[in-house]
C-alpha cells in the first residue's frame, strides 16, 4: 500500500511538466465517498493562503487596498491532475494550457 503524508503538501510549490512554477498548495479538499473519505482537489495559488487562515475577507480587503487583486488568484486542480507520490515535489500531470479552466476566485462567504 502506497501512502503519503498530506501535511507535507501544505505550502509546497507545484511544478508543471516542464518544470515551470504553477503556484503553491494552500488547501486540500476532501469529500465523503461512500464509507471512504477521499481527496478531490488541490487549491494552488495566492488567495488560498487566506482561506487557510480563514481570513479571506481581510486578505482580499488588503489586496484591494493595494490594487493587487487579480482574477487568476486560485487554481482548483482535480486530484487526478496532480502527482503527489513525492509530497515534497508535487507535479502537474496535465499541460499548462488546461490550467486556465481551473481558475477560480476564493470562497468569500466562508
Amino acid at each position: 500500500m502506497i501512502t503519503v503524508n498530506l501535511e507535507h503538501l501544505a505550502g509546497r510549490r507545484v511544478l508543471s511538466q516542464r518544470g515551470k512554477n504553477v503556484g503553491y498548495i494552500e488547501e486540500i479538499r476532501a469529500e465523503r465517498d461512500g464509507d471512504d473519505f477521499v481527496v478531490t482537489e488541490f487549491h494552488v495559488g495566492v488567495y488560498a493562503a487566506f482561506e487557510r487562515l480563514s481570513a479571506s475577507a481581510i486578505g482580499v480587503a488588503v489586496l484591494d487596498l493595494f490594487r493587487l487583486r487579480r482574477r487568476d488568484g486560485l487554481y482548483r486542480i482535480p486530484w487526478d491532475k496532480l502527482d503527489i507520490s513525492d509530497p515534497a515535489r508535487p507535479r502537474l500531470l496535465c499541460p499548462m494550457t488546461e490550467l486556465s479552466g481551473m481558475k477560480d476566485a476564493p470562497d468569500l462567504q466562508e
Binding site: 502506497i2 503524508n5 473519505f37 481527496v39 486530484w79
Partner: peptide, 19 residues
C-alpha cells in the same frame, strides 16, 4: 499532527489515518 492518505491507481487518494 499529520494526515495519511493511500494512493490508489485510477482512484482518488483515500484518507486512512491521522498521525
Amino acid at each position: 499532527d499529520g494526515l495519511v492518505a493511500q494512493l490508489r491507481p485510477g482512484k482518488p487518494p483515500r484518507i486512512i489515518a491521522i498521525e
